[in-house]
């Protein structure tokens, strides 16, 4: 085979540009005024303006949308990890009656589309007064993120030899000491990856978030879909909101980037 580094590099560059184009366009739109956007086509914004971002940070509808989203995403991620870490440890370390069935059942929750659960959640939350709170959305998302988190973490935890648990016992350490001082630090990467998956699911999920939130807990994805006013679509504002919506994901990816590859292999890489 002929060795043509120039060609392969060229292909990669073209592909990279293709992937980056929508992101660039979003960023460039967010920095323009509506007149600019709807005016003549130009690759670079003729005039740069931060007015769209200023609007988002000064209008409570917008920044509260972000705050609402971040709060239920944070609650969801915390609950998911708090529940999934002990569960995954149990699945990886103990054999008990029906363990395999239970593990599979957890996964089947991920096979149902979220829409199926809309009605029961809506009715249930209305009845117990949870409707229109961040906790409602967070709990609903847990139905999907907890099985995912258990599934990912179990793979990582099973890769840690049980001799290590026994070693700590023989050394005379309590289980809690071993778990906090050795086991969790070893699996830091796994937890980071799981956090990423929970965060992303909850952050981009629209259907449950929209149905279970009313006026006072409206998440940002919902705010964005409702910005079509009588005066038409506010393109620049929407783009600015889009940029801000992408940012948290980028930040999370940045922090767990080293462990992501392992995470996608579900921990089966040593």
């Amino acid at each position: 085979m002929m060795n043509r580094p120039g060609l392969s590099r060229g292909v990669l560059i073209v592909y990279g540009l293709y992937l980056l184009l929508p992101l660039y366009w979003l960023l460039s739109m967010s920095l323009r005024s509506n007149a600019d956007i709807q005016g003549s086509f130009s690759l670079l914004p003729p005039t740069l303006t931060l007015a769209n971002f200023a609007e988002i940070f000064s209008n409570p509808v917008w920044y509260e949308g972000f705050a609402n989203s971040l709060s239920y995403v944070a609650i969801n991620t915390l609950i998911s990890l708090a529940v999934a870490i002990p569960a995954a440890y149990a699945f990886s370390r103990y054999r008990f009656l029906g363990d395999k069935q239970l593990f599979f059942w957890l996964l089947t929750n991920r096979m149902a589309p979220p829409a199926v659960f809309l009605l029961p959640f809506f009715q249930l939350y209305s009845a117990v007064g949870l409707f229109d709170t961040p906790l409602a959305v967070a709990l609903a998302h847990c139905l999907f993120t907890v099985p995912l988190a258990v599934w990912i973490l179990e793979g990582f935890f099973s890769g840690v030899p049980t001799e290590l648990d026994e070693m700590a016992q023989i050394d005379g350490h309590s289980f809690l000491y071993f778990f906090m001082r050795v086991f969790l630090p070893i699996n830091r990467g796994a937890i980071g990856v799981t956090l990423f998956f929970c965060f992303m699911f909850s952050w981009v999920e629209l259907l449950l978030a929209r149905t279970l939130s009313g006026a006072s807990s409206k998440p940002i994805v919902v705010v964005m879909t409702r910005t079509v006013s009588a005066s038409g679509v506010d393109w620049g504002l929407l783009a600015a909101a889009g940029v801000l919506t992408v940012l948290p994901g980028v930040l999370v990816v940045w922090f767990v980037r080293k462990d992501l590859v392992k995470g996608f292999a579900l921990g089966r890489v040593s």
Binding site: P161, E163, L164, E166, M167, A168, Q169, I170, D171, G172, H173, S174, V182, P185, I186
Partner: peptide, 20 residues
Amino acid sequence: SPRARPVSMVYQAFVNYPNL
């Protein structure tokens, strides 16, 4: 329990706390 026994052990595989 293994914690309370006056017993120490060396495994065939090299078992050490990897983060310490």
